[in-house]
Write a protein that binds this DNA or RNA. Structure first.
Lengths: 159, 159
DNA sequence: ATAAATAGTTGGCGCTACACAGACGATCCT
DNA sequence: AGGATCGTCTGTGTAGCGCCAACTATTTAT
């Protein structure tokens, strides 16, 4: 298992990711509608659960969204008491955004409700494989991109 | 490997998938722009490469897009000679859509160009893990959802 | 042979997501 | 005091995309 002729040169996951995300999102939309949530809310809640209390601009950076649009997103979530905005004691300009208990519960409910949708999309994978997939995605998601200096150093562009 | 205490009950990949797909798409857009492509074109080309010659409505079903929008998508690709529409000899109403040589080449170029973007998004994963991820995504993507009767039979909704 | 169904195309309408820009209050840092 | 920063609000523009309707070419069913 050492000198595999592995040539991952063209094994780009981007398009597949896009494709599957779309499939999931389509299903998620209808499943989540009765819960008053949208896919994008789920993403925010998930990030919030993983990251704990973060400022809004940190959230904007993680979500890679414009901060002005984060406002509306959080307004939605706060109106439903799924999220709480508290002023930071250190810097009172900042809002520390945090998941409420209700938010965590609702997130869990939503995830539960999504089981069927995932069964459809990931039907080809066995439970253990899905778990592997989840783990890989989770790890990739919980690291801020570009943060390491890698991208700055090398840019070979030679495939 | 039987009675693992694995509890994947709340390990839903949907949100992570969405999140990472967004990150990739944002980067892909700028990387692909010089090639005259957009993320959605990449998805279509990828599906086409995997699936061989398919009718447009089959493509619409795979991509889970409205068939009227498939037309424009294919117009783009055909205008660039990346894709070919031929009438099916069996059923002359149908268009058999197929990747051209140029299309396959361009797709490969695009994938090559996306290497940097993936390095940013999947920086947390080692090459072998990325390969695993790719393989899981590929398998999940190359099976039509709902096609099996699974989803029709069971709908427990009890988590 | 005639009717009905199907594949693709075109055009238009409308909604949603989002980026972007401008202006504002509150607050921090010099 | 003055400038930078965080969050908020509002408005504008654009892109993706679903959906409806009409039309042609073709197949299939009666």
């Amino acid at each position: 298992m050492s000198a595999l002729p592995l040539d991952p040169s063209e094994h780009r996951s981007g398009a597949l990711l896009d494709h599957l995300a779309r499939r999931m999102r389509l299903r998620a939309e209808s499943v989540l509608a009765p819960l008053g949530l949208r896919p994008r809310h789920l993403v925010a809640l998930t990030v919030l659960r993983a990251g704990g209390g973060t400022s809004q601009q940190a959230l904007a950076s993680t979500l890679e969204m414009d901060s002005t649009n984060i406002v509306g997103l959080l307004n939605d979530l706060e109106a439903k008491d799924l999220v709480e905005r508290r002023r930071s004691p250190q810097d009172r300009r900042r809002h520390v955004v945090e998941l409420t208990e209700d938010g965590a519960k609702r997130l869990k409910e939503a995830e539960c409700a999504l089981a069927g949708a995932e069964d459809e999309v990931f039907g080809a994978l066995e439970p253990a494989e899905r778990e592997t997939l989840y783990e890989l995605l989770r790890r990739a998601a919980t690291t801020t991109p570009i943060s390491c200096g890698e991208a700055l150093i090398e840019e070979p562009d030679a495939c």
